[in-house]
Simulated scan of single mutants.
Amino acid sequence: MQVNEKMRNRYHLGEKRWFLGLLVILGIIGASLFITTLLQTSNNTLLCSLTRTNTRTTNQLNNPTQIQLHAILHYATSHVVPQQSISEISVTLDVIKSLNRPINFLVFGLGHDSLMWTGFNPSGTTLFLEEDPKWVQTVLKDAPELRAHTVQYRTQLQEADELLKSYKSEPTCSPAKAFLRGNEKCKLALHNLPDEVYETDWDLIMIDAPRGYFAEAPGRMAAIFSMTVMARNRKGSGVTHVFLHDVDRKVEKVYAEEFLCRKNLVKGVGRLWHFEIPSLGNQNNTLDHSIASRFC
Rank of each mutant, 00 (worst) to 15 (best):
T55V: 13
T57P: 02
T57N: 15
L61N: 13
L61S: 08
N62E: 15
N62M: 06
N62A: 13
N63H: 12
T65R: 03
T65D: 05
T65G: 12
Q66T: 09
I67N: 03
Q68C: 11
L69Q: 07
L69A: 10
H70N: 10
H70E: 07
A71N: 05
I72L: 10
I72N: 01
H74I: 06
Y75E: 03
A76N: 08
A76S: 14
V80C: 09
V80M: 06
V80F: 07
V81Y: 02
P82G: 05
P82N: 10
P82D: 11
P82E: 04
Q84D: 08
S85I: 01
I86M: 10
S87N: 09
S87L: 09
S87G: 07
E88Q: 15
E88T: 03
S90T: 09
V91P: 04
V91W: 05
L93Q: 05
D94I: 00
V95Y: 00
V95P: 05
K97R: 14
S98T: 09
L99S: 07
N100E: 15
N104F: 00
F105R: 02
F105N: 11
L106D: 12
L106S: 05
V107F: 06
F108Y: 12
F108W: 12
F108L: 10
F108V: 03
F108R: 02
G109W: 00
G109E: 08
G111Q: 02
G111Y: 03
H112G: 05
H112E: 14
H112S: 14
D113V: 00
D113W: 02
S114L: 10
L115H: 06
M116I: 13
W117I: 01
T118C: 13
G119Y: 03
